[in-house]
Nucleic acid binder design. Structure first.
Length: 332
DNA sequence: ATAATTTGACCCCC
DNA sequence: GGGGGTCAAATTAT
């Protein structure tokens, strides 16, 4: 571990933490190993409350998001120019109290305690309702865009407010996810310029993204699919709009429920069509609480047959990411 | 025309 | 009351 630098250790810490939470949740759901049927359990081991499960999910998602942000920063800022260092990442318990000296991170980073550590904070501080993950990063300004070219996230944000803070020289800006309305994504962040070092910005994230920003294919596509293939795919899409059947491929056994009654499927092309670097989404439902949205991709295993994989990622009912279940869709 | 920002008003809660 | 957070109308950018 001595070979790892600071950021790599933080990154590893997040990944480990997320993995631990994921495994605990997996065990809880009885997602047994390869031999499918869980043998008769005298009394099912599910003694975690729903809130605890939600907490686990939040931990997983936020760990992934922090990890992604770290990678993003270290790659986009390290390689092209010189410095611009991510100084610290401080997870904050939801009690609302922020540690004053954020740079104090001990060498031991969360490879041990689990249900005694963070999640206890979540449960204790929450009598009920929202316990959103919250953490703060300190980001040094980069020699990019003008004087105040705020902070390239991987995510796209919409500013919704700005406030002068009592002791602070600089105002605090409030951002929410661009897709709050369109995809029910409730992630927010605050950005405040540091008094002491004006080249440092404190960025506080609240909540995790449930939108599909990171799922969409990269904008730039070097390898253009040949036009005929694209046309073929788009034709299929048109056909799919009118008549479509869904085969769940027997996946719903893992607890992921699927709307059965026929409301139906609408397709929305975001950022272009197939093969054009855009994402085409399948929406299932009637804009009701049981809707699901997923990203359509071509099925690689079936060649030219009109079958598509759809990754359903967002569950608005619970406001959580349901994972990357893949369903088989076919037309006719 | 649509989307994003600005900015004062409003709304808790300590 | 007032500090911090959010809303939304007006303004500006795309």
């Amino acid at each position: 571990m001595d070979m790892l630098n600071w950021e790599q250790r933080n990154l590893l810490s997040e990944l480990i933490h997320g993995l631990k939470a994921a495994k605990q949740l997996q065990a809880e759901l009885g997602a047994a190993p390869s031999p499918p049927p869980p043998s008769v359990s005298s009394s099912s081991s599910s003694w975690l409350t729903t809130e605890m499960k939600e907490t686990l999910l939040h931990q997983i998602v936020s760990s992934y998001e922090r990890a992604i942000l770290m990678v993003k920063r270290s790659t986009t800022l390290d390689s092209p120019t010189t410095e611009t260092v991510n100084l610290a990442v401080v997870p904050v318990a939801n009690t609302g109290k922020v540690p004053e000296s954020p740079t104090s991170i001990n060498g031991s980073l969360g490879s041990e305690e689990f249900l005694d550590g963070r999640s206890k904070d979540y449960n204790l501080s929450s009598k009920k309702r929202k316990t959103l993950p919250k953490w703060t990063e300190q980001v040094k300004i980069s020699p990019e865009r003008g004087l105040e070219g705020p902070h390239d996230d991987v995510f796209s944000w919409r500013k919704y407010g700005q406030k002068d803070i009592l002791g602070a020289k600089y105002p605090r800006s409030y951002y929410r996810c661009t897709f709050r309305n369109t995809q029910n994504c409730w992630a927010t962040k605050q950005v405040q310029r540091s008094d002491g070092d004006p080249t440092i910005f404190e960025v506080t994230y609240k909540g995790t993204h449930t939108c599909a920003q990171l799922i969409q294919p990269p904008r730039k596509r070097e390898t253009k699919p040949n036009p005929t293939a694209v046309n073929y795919q788009n034709d299929l899409l048109v056909n799919l709009r009118t008549n479509l059947t869904v085969r769940t491929n027997g996946i719903e056994s893992d607890g992921f429920s699927f709307p059965v009654t026929p409301p139906f499927y609408s397709y929305e092309s975001i950022n272009g069509d197939f093969g054009n670097g855009g994402g085409t989404f399948c929406h299932v439902g009637n804009s009701g609480p049981s809707d699901f949205t997923g990203l359509i991709s071509t099925n690689t295993s079936t060649g030219s047959s009109p079958i598509f994989d759809v990754d359903f990622q967002f569950d608005p009912t619970h406001g959580i990411d349901t994972g990357f279940h893949t369903f088989l869709h076919d037309s006719i």
